[in-house]
């Protein structure tokens, strides 16, 4: 079978240790957590880091908790922990919807939310869910930490705001009342990357949509944040016509590329169709 090129291996014992290793080893070092994106790329020799810093022992980054009006998820929380978190499922069912269709149970046993977001694959599901949830991301370096908005996190395909000597430490989801959320994905087969996917979070007030987030996966060069669709929804009472209008904008504003999963026309159609379906379920959950 295919095997990675040689590299050196270090195991970090704390976040500080991981950061100092990155600082010392320089730009040819990569962090490895679940490894389910990085190792296949290394086997294909599309990636050949000289050093791997294993952060699987950083249990300080493995948590899902409510704190300061936010739901805070440590970057090392595994997909499976997200799926099994009653708290996350209750406050943000979009994450449970998404986790059920991310890869397969074995991959979910290893893969982490931090790894998923940092891979910055345009088809990655949690990025779209985080975009919809208006997530904020805590990035730590030896000099301290900074918080960036999800919209500023991805700099393009496979590129993020995390610097070479930094680590994504935490994902923060603002908690608000009367929330509902949902994730819809079309895949060619169980475990495949999305042909297209849409995530929606709504926050209701007096029967109207007080605020909303719409994020799409696999229909742009990174997770697509649908500002115009959100704009048309905000402040309005939910209706099929409203959802149609938002779906049309989501479809119009994405920029899919044709590949084996489908042509542009189909993916654009899915962006609209799945936005509509996610809106319906998110609103129903908020009102339910």
């Amino acid at each position: 079978m295919q095997v990675p090129a040689p590299f050196d291996y270090e195991r970090a014992t704390s976040v500080e240790h991981a950061l100092s290793l990155l600082e010392r080893l320089g730009p040819e070092a990569r962090l490895i957590a679940g490894g389910h994106s990085l190792l296949p790329m290394m086997k294909l020799r599309l990636a050949a880091p000289e050093h791997l810093v294993d952060i699987n022992d950083l249990h300080e980054l493995d948590y899902i908790r409510e704190e300061a009006g936010e739901l805070r998820i440590g970057a090392l929380a595994r997909h499976r922990e997200l799926l099994e978190s009653e708290l996350l499922g209750r406050r943000f069912p979009i994450f449970h919807d998404a986790e059920r269709v991310i890869a397969d149970p074995l991959v979910r046993n290893r893969g982490t939310i931090g790894g998923a977001l940092c891979q910055a694959d345009p088809s990655e599901d949690l990025s779209a869910a985080c975009a919809a949830a208006h997530a904020r991301l805590v990035i730590r370096g030896l000099g301290g930490e900074r918080v960036v908005e999800m919209a500023d996190f991805h700099r393009g395909p496979y590129e993020t705001a995390v610097g070479p000597s930094e680590i994504l430490a935490e994902i923060r989801l603002p908690l608000r009342e009367a929330a509902g959320s949902a994730y819809e994905k079309v895949e060619r087969r169980t475990g495949d990357w999305a042909v297209a996917a849409a995530g929606v979070c709504v926050w209701m007030s007096d029967g109207a949509i007080a605020d909303v987030g719409v994020g799409l996966a696999a229909v742009g060069s990174s997770a697509v944040h649908c500002a115009r669709a959100e704009e048309v929804l905000r402040g309005e009472r939910p209706s099929e016509e409203l959802f149609d209008a938002a779906a049309d904008l989501a479809a119009a504003d994405c920029s899919p590329a044709a590949d084996q999963r489908g042509p542009v026309e189909y993916k654009r159609h899915l962006a609209g169709e799945l936005t509509r379906r996610a809106l319906r379920r998110a609103v129903a959950r908020a009102l339910g």
Binding site: R188, A258, Q260, R261, P263, E265, Y266
Partner: peptide, 17 residues
């Protein structure tokens, strides 16, 4: 595939690549 079935529903006779 979903893409081919959807294309057929739109009246396309040639499947997408």
């Amino acid at each position: 595939t979903p893409a081919r079935v959807w294309a057929a529903m739109q009246g396309h006779t040639e499947p997408p690549a």
